[in-house]
Every structure is written in structure tokens, then in C-alpha cells.
């Protein structure tokens, strides 16, 4: 699914990613953990194609195709989805209109028929019910005035509707209470199948009680310094990062 080879990126003169190597196969969930400033969010942004990063070395293949040359919208249409750490408020843009445009862009690219207003509403309402989002959400402008938890659930709703092959969740758990965390995790678990993969970036082990990872990676100073299975997350919870950093 995803193959990252020796990826190096900088912002202005500062090197943030210093050679990332990561392989994600179909059907897998990978967790990326690490202290603040280690490069987790930069990795997510670079995968989604955010401007302002200078890629100095390395390659990123999605199903065998190099995506680093693609625009953010082309990556999205190819099946990359970034759940934003800080979803952007867009006053004046109606949520229904936005989401239907996005869904139809992606469907068009996949050669699927675009959804008309009625079928779209039917589908989105069913998904919203699963995420315990009130229907009045659809009438509100995108993320405008939403609480932190509502914004994160809205990200998961978009992910569900777009059905990406690779979802990157950037600290989707931050600021969520335990109920919201469960709803968000359920949303991720529902889309999980043998043809897609998820990368979950988090500070805390508690999300990984709900979204069980196949692999856990520790990112520190722009490199993955340790990989393991889900027990690594428990070790980090107990011992922190210091024991790894000393050895790095």
C-alpha cells in the first residue's frame, strides 16, 4: 500500500524529517508515536502534500506510484486522506455542499457515478448516525463554531464518506473525552478492511486500546528509532521515551 523510502524534508533551513523508512501493507494499522517536535505532524503533512515543505530526498509510493509529485487534490483522489489535527473552520461554506463536492470529485476520479443530492443525503445521514452526529450539522458551515470533539468527529465523517485507501490520522484523539474517543475509534474500525490501511499518529496509548495497531513506531528527531508490535505502546506508556532516546 504505502512505501516510504529515506524521506527527508525541511521547512526553510530546518531539517525536520531526516530519513524516514516505513512500509505499510493492505489491512494494516500502524501507530506512530513520539515526543513533541519529533516530526509526526510534518510526516502527515508531507504525505498529504501540504505546501511549504522542501522534500530534499527520498520517495513515497502509494500502490507502486510515486505520489510526491502529485498535488494534494490528486493524492486525495488517489485515496490518501489526512484527518487534520486542527480541522479548518470555513465560515459560509455549507457542510453538505462541501462534503458532496468532495465525495463526487473522488468518485469521478475512480470512475464511479456521482451521487445526486438525494442519494448523497441518504448515505451521509446513515453515516452520521453511526458517528452520533446530529443532522443539523449538515446545515452548518464547515467546522465553524464546532467544539473540538465535533470537529474531530467531522473529520471521521469525511473519512467515512471518502472511503480512502490510506487514512492518516494526525492526533485525532487529542482533546477528546472518553466517549468521543470511542466514537472516533469505532469510525476508524468500521472502514478498516483488507484493501486499505491506516496510520494513526498519537501521543497517547489510550487511543490504541480502541484502535489496535499491528505495528507501533517511535519517531524521534526525524527518524523512526524503534518499531514493534502493540506492546511497545504499553512500554512507552509506562516508561516514557527517555530509555529509547538514550539509545538512539
Amino acid at each position: 500500500m504505502l512505501e516510504i523510502k529515506n524521506l527527508k524534508a525541511r521547512i526553510e533551513e530546518k531539517e525536520i524529517l531526516k530519513g524516514i523508512n516505513l512500509s505499510v501493507n493492505n489491512g494494516e494499522v500502524h501507530a506512530i508515536m513520539g515526543p513533541n517536535g519529533s516530526g509526526k505532524s510534518t510526516l502527515a503533512s508531507v504525505l498529504a502534500g501540504r505546501e511549504g515543505y522542501d522534500i530534499t530526498d527520498g520517495e513515497v509510493f502509494l500502490r507502486g506510484n510515486d505520489i510526491l509529485e502529485l498535488s494534494p487534490e490528486e493524492r486525495a483522489r488517489e485515496g490518501v486522506f489526512l484527518a487534520f489535527q486542527y480541522p479548518v473552520e470555513i465560515p459560509g461554506v455549507n457542510s453538505t455542499y462541501f462534503l458532496r463536492s468532495a465525495v463526487n470529485q473522488v468518485r469521478k476520479h475512480r470512475g464511479e457515478e456521482e451521487l445526486d443530492a438525494m442519494n448523497f443525503l441518504k448515505l451521509v445521514k446513515a453515516k452520521m448516525k453511526e458517528l452520533e452526529l446530529a443532522e443539523e450539522f449538515l446545515k452548518r458551515p464547515v467546522n465553524a463554531g464546532f467544539s473540538g470533539g465535533e470537529k474531530k468527529r467531522n473529520e471521521i465523517l469525511q473519512m467515512t464518506m471518502l472511503n480512502p485507501s490510506l487514512a492518516v490520522l494526525d492526533e485525532t484523539d487529542s482533546g477528546l473525552d472518553i466517549d468521543a474517543l470511542r466514537i472516533v475509534a469505532d469510525g476508524v474500525n468500521r472502514i478498516k478492511n483488507q484493501n486499505n490501511a491506516q496510520i494513526v499518529i498519537t501521543h497517547y496509548q489510550r487511543l490504541l486500546d480502541y484502535i489496535v495497531p499491528d505495528f507501533v513506531h517511535v519517531l524521534y528527531d526525524g527518524r523512526i528509532i524503534k518499531s514493534g508490535d502493540k506492546t511497545l505502546a504499553h512500554d512507552l506508556e509506562e516508561k516514557g521515551y527517555d530509555w529509547l532516546i538514550k539509545n538512539a
Partner: peptide, 28 residues
């Protein structure tokens, strides 16, 4: 808003569609 444009592009809308959507929202 550049962040808003990136957000929309990351959902599959091209730059022009994203700009138009933001302007439509602004007038809306």
C-alpha cells in the same frame, strides 16, 4: 485563507474549485 484552501484540496477539490467555494462562502 491558505489553510482553508489546503483543507479543501486535501479533500479532492482542485485549487480553483477550492477558491470558488471559499468565495461563495464569503458572499454566502
Amino acid at each position: 485563507d491558505k489553510d482553508a484552501i489546503f483543507y479543501l484540496r486535501a479533500r479532492g477539490l482542485d485549487t480553483k474549485a477550492a477558491q470558488q467555494m471559499l468565495m461563495h462562502g464569503f458572499t454566502g
